[in-house]
Design a protein around this nucleic acid. Structure first.
Length: 472
DNA sequence: ATGTGC
């Protein structure tokens, strides 16, 4: 795959048939995927063939191989001009995302109670494969309310406060959820898991603010140096996974009917404005609401522990997805288009002044939450005006080793010990789970954030360091 | 990511 360096942190894959638009990769030379081991640049070019795609098939600096679309990919299609929606452009973990809470407590104050806090969080956080659930739902009306209401419903039921919703993307729920388009099997899996962490790269972390890069914005976000924070990374569990599986299968069957041909079966898609496209978007939105309710419940459990053990409060900084497709309007007044923006392992990053931001964030911009690999740091960023990829930026460090490779690299070593030697408390993680998530399996998150900022996609606000981690 | 593998 030939890359042309257009400017620092920006590489182009020239359009060639059957691409409809060029590919654009935001990265530094050293962050570019290794063409021998990782087919993600080919995936960028494949995505560029999708009907209705506009401008370019974009990739963020944390790009790596994914199902059909690369992880770290952004693609927008024009709804009025045959634009398609593709489940692979969202990913299996629909509305997977990050929630950050800030404590009214400094690290020095937490230290003496850290063991008790971690024990409490370990007990209060359901995690691992298949396990549920902070909240046992009846399959009927109550799950339906979660799928329609997301965090709003969780708050209504007492699992949070009204202010939380102002600090959630979409005020805690997307509007066009259609639970009728969610299969019985997906409902079955979801009913037992709402309020659970999952496994893989999902985690709950106790952190401290290590460095502030922009004091005014950090203050607007409610962050100051030395402060304790809690970061939750989780998604829509088995429900989102099942929805993705269901619709990939369904779209594979009907693509020919719409005269759509793609270079990879995993790019199964249908026009946004078709029966199948609308059905997927309705089900996807339901899974998005499920994921938000899930993070709201996990946050409630963490708040209960912090309040009991330390007497301190946890205020929501923000909750943001990094696996979602959204219908958005982009462009200037005379030339605006309704686009279906797929972000898969990419985060929306609204600039200061954007009308969708709550009043108290209007001047600062939208908080962008970037979890680093386990045991390294995480970042808080904000959006910038005039950014090139439909107001999107990176979502994390990005894998460089497969799970299998990572496990092999840890053979004979003790991953838990390595974390504890760095003064990071660990609760609940399996040996294998930890081995798969070791920092060596990931790119350097600081280099990723540096490249994203250098490419004009976002700005750094603060860096957070891990103190304790709860994993599946 | 995922009751890991139709």
């Amino acid at each position: 795959m030939e890359l042309v360096e257009e400017s620092p942190y920006r590489f182009r894959i020239d359009r060639h048939d059957p691409m409809r638009v060029p590919g654009v990769v935001f990265a530094s030379e050293s962050l570019l995927p290794d063409a021998g081991a990782d087919k993600s640049l080919e995936q960028v070019a494949n995505v560029a063939t999708l009907p209705g795609i506009v401008d370019a098939s974009y990739a963020m600096p944390d790009i790596h191989w994914g199902y059909g679309f690369p992880i770290g990919g952004v693609a927008a299609t024009d709804v009025e001009h045959g634009g398609v929606v593709s489940p692979g452009g969202v990913g299996f973990d629909i509305s997977c995302g990050v929630r950050l809470l800030a404590a009214d407590l400094d690290l020095a104050g937490l230290r003496p109670k850290l063991g008790a806090v971690m024990d409490g969080l370990g007990e209060a956080t359901p995690r691992g494969m298949g396990k549920g659930a902070v909240w046992h739902l009846s399959k009927g009306e109550e799950l339906d309310a979660v799928l329609r209401g997301g965090s709003r419903y969780a708050v209504e039921r007492g699992f949070g406060v009204e202010r939380d919703l102002e600090r959630c993307e979409d005020y805690g729920a997307v509007d066009d959820a259609n639970p009728a388009q969610v299969s019985e099997r997906a409902i079955e899996r979801g009913a037992r898991q709402v309020g659970s962490l999952g496994s893989g790269n999902h985690f709950l972390e106790v952190q401290a603010v290590e460095e502030v890069y922009d004091e005014a914005v950090a203050t607007a976000f409610g962050l100051r140096p030395g402060q304790v924070t809690v970061m939750i990374h989780s998604g829509s569990r088995g429900l989102g996974h099942q929805i993705c599986t269901d619709y990939v299968r369904q779209m594979e069957k009907v693509m020919r009917q719409y005269n759509i041909h793609v270079p990879d079966r995993q790019l199964a898609c249908a026009p946004v404005d078709s029966h199948e496209g609308r059905a997927y978007l309705g089900a996807m939105a339901a899974a998005a609401n499920y994921a938000r309710a899930n993070r709201q419940l996990l946050a409630h459990a963490a708040r209960t522990v912090f309040s009991r053990v330390t007497g301190s409060r946890l205020d929501l900084v923000y909750d943001i997805s990094h696996n979602l497709a959204k219908i958005e309007t982009h462009g200037t007044d005379g030339d605006s288009r309704r686009l279906c923006v797929h972000r898969k392992g990419a985060t929306r990053a609204l600039p200061p002044g954007h009308p969708e931001l709550p009043d108290d964030l209007r001047d600062a911009g939208q908080p962008v939450l970037i979890p680093g690999s386990m045991g390294t740091g995480s970042y808080v960023l904000t959006g910038v005006a005039g950014s090139p990829a439909f107001a999107s930026t990176c979502h994390g460090a990005g894998r460089v080793q497969s799970r299998k490779q990572a496990v092999k690299a840890e053979r004979g070593l003790d991953p838990r010990r390595q974390l504890e030697d760095q003064d990071i408390a660990v609760r609940g993680a399996s040996r294998r789970g930890l081995a798969e998530e070791m920092p060596a399996a990931y790119k350097d998150v600081s280099a990723v954030v540096e490249a994203a900022e250098g490419a004009g996609l976002c700005r750094k606000v603060a860096r957070l360091v891990p103190i304790g981690v709860v994993k599946g």
